[in-house]
Structures are given as C-alpha cells and as structure tokens.
C-alpha cells in the first residue's frame, strides 16, 4: 500500500513537470501549428539562470528558491517571446522550416549552455523541508513532490482563468479552433502568437527550476529529456487541448512510475506503448479535435 501511494504521489509530481512543459507545447501547436522543438531550451535556460540568481542571493532557502522560480518564469517568457518574434514569425505555414529552425535552436541552445556551464550536472541546494519526507498512510513521501504538484495546479488554474476570463484568452481559444476566421473578424492574431509563446515559455522556465529541485541538479540536458515526454503527453492528450495536456501528464507519469517499479524498469517502454495505443485508437488524442 505504502509503495502504491509513494508511486502515485511521485507520478503526480513528475506529471506536474510534464504538464509545465506540455501546456505550452500544446497551446503553441493548437494556435500556430508549430511543433516547438526549442521548448526544452526555454526550460533549461530558466533553470540555469534561476539557479544562478537564487544561489547568489540566498542559496538553499525558500527566499532563494522563490527568486529562482521568478527568474525562471521571466527568462522563459522572454526567451520564448523572442524566439517567436525573431524566428518563428517569419515561418508560419512553413512546417519543414519551422522544424529545422526549432531543432537547430534546441541543438545550439544545449551547446551554448554546455559551453557556459559545462557538460556535468551541477548539484543544487534546496530548502531543508524539501529534502525531508512526510508520512502519508505509511508511505514516506519526499516533500518536493508536494511543491511540484501545488505549483502545477496553480499554473493550470492561472492559464484556465486567463483563457476563460480575458479577451486575449478568448482570441486564443478561438484561434486554436480557426485562426483564419479570427483574422477575418479584424483581430491581429499574431499578437496572441507572441503571447502564447511567452506563456508557454514562462511555464517551461518555471518547470526548469522545479526540475532542478526534483532531480537535485541543473544540466544542459534537463530540457531535452523532459521535452520528449512532454511531446508524448501532448499527443496523447490531444494537440491544442490544455485539459488533455493536464490529464495526459498525470496518466503518463503515473504509468511510468508503476511500470518502472513493478515491471522491471520498463516505464519508458510503457509510455511509448501507451502512445502507440492512443494513436491507433484515438489518433486525435484523448481531448483533441477530431480533425486536428
């Protein structure tokens, strides 16, 4: 029983990380039909700069961590918005070029960060409470899981409130459905493209800082490994669906944890099989548009 609880909560924590990456990927694809392979860079640069600032001000304290998260959010948003504005904007509807540019940016970004921070993981300090555990029904749960889950829930709520309660949110929801019709109503949909990149980048940058808490280190490859699972999550959830991304993040991460523990470390294989099953049975994903 305690093992099940531990796996479940750990799965939720990991799912929280997936969601922070997948939410942006899914919105970006939904609105702009861009598969953003550079999304992992937003995460990694957020993690590195968040760590750099946080440790200088107050290493291993809540204040330092909070500052790191803030820096991660801001850096992720800025880098993502610049990426859209300087590179992607010229390439809408040109899918091959988009893939080439975002993949190129991902490779260059990793190389650049390796150049600055080296190829080895850098171990990070965190507030003492996060290194401790809390007992739930006999399971000793590392406290960092709760932080991850709580923040991902807040981010989900924040994005939902934004999408439902603001005019930009309305434009984005409409644009995910039918971008051309939005422009035909006299709306400059491109402005919301930049905004969606910024929001996705902010979530990813925050995810980067939280990933460094979860794994206990920062590395230039933090983003690339999470990005693969985030893409799988996005496809399983349905490209363009935020709710789908949230549900699939949890399903994928929990499945991964259970398969790793009970089926001899086959978590990644189980995820790929789940992806294949969804693609065969429901190609548009759990919550995706039928024709997308």
């Amino acid at each position: 029983m305690s093992t099940v609880i531990l796996l479940l909560v750990t799965g939720l924590g990991l799912g929280a990380l997936y969601f922070l990456v997948a939410s942006g990927l899914s919105l970006i694809y939904g609105l702009m039909h861009v598969l953003n392979f550079a999304h992992g860079v937003f995460l990694t640069i957020g993690a590195f700069l968040g760590w750099e600032v946080g440790r200088r001000v107050s290493d291993g304290t809540w204040g330092g961590l909070l500052l790191s998260m803030l820096v991660g959010v801001v850096v992720g948003a800025i880098v993502a918005a610049l990426t859209e504005y300087l590179l992607i904007r010229r390439l809408y509807e040109r899918h091959i070029e988009q893939v080439l540019v975002t993949v190129g940016l991902a490779l260059a970004g990793v190389a650049l960060m390796e150049g600055i921070w080296g190829t080895d993981p850098i171990y990070t300090a965190k507030p003492a409470w996060l290194t401790e555990t809390t007992e739930i029904l006999g399971a000793r749960i590392p406290n960092d899981r709760f932080l991850l889950i709580g923040i991902a829930v807040l981010v989900l709520l924040g994005i939902v409130l934004f999408l439902r309660g603001t005019r930009y949110g309305l434009i984005i929801r409409a644009g995910v459905e039918n971008r051309h019709m939005v422009t035909a109503l006299g709306i400059d949909v491109r402005r919301s493209f930049t905004l969606v990149f910024a929001i996705g980048g902010a979530a990813a940058g925050l995810g980067g800082v939280l990933a460094s808490v979860y794994y206990g280190y920062v590395s230039a490859h933090l983003g690339s490994s999470l990005l693969i699972f985030a893409f799988i999550v996005t496809v399983i959830g349905g490209l363009g669906s935020l709710a789908g991304a949230a549900i699939a993040s949890v399903l994928v991460a929990v499945l991964q944890q259970f398969a790793n523990f009970y089926l001899g470390g086959t978590g990644d294989l189980a995820v790929v099989l789940a992806l294949a099953a969804v693609l065969l049975i429901r190609p548009s994903g759990l919550m995706g548009k039928a024709a997308a």
Binding site: L170, A174, M181, V182, L185
Partner: peptide
C-alpha cells in the same frame, strides 16, 4: 465577412462568438 459554411467557433458560446467579433 460572413463566410461560406458559417465558420462559427464551435467551442465558444454564442455570447463569446459575438463578443469576439
């Protein structure tokens, strides 16, 4: 512009469709 086949935003409410316009 009133397009062929209407092109309303199916996932938005009537009020949201109008507010957007």
């Amino acid at each position: 512009y009133v397009p062929e086949d209407r092109e309303v935003f199916a996932g938005l409410t009537v009020a949201e469709n109008l507010r957007l316009a």
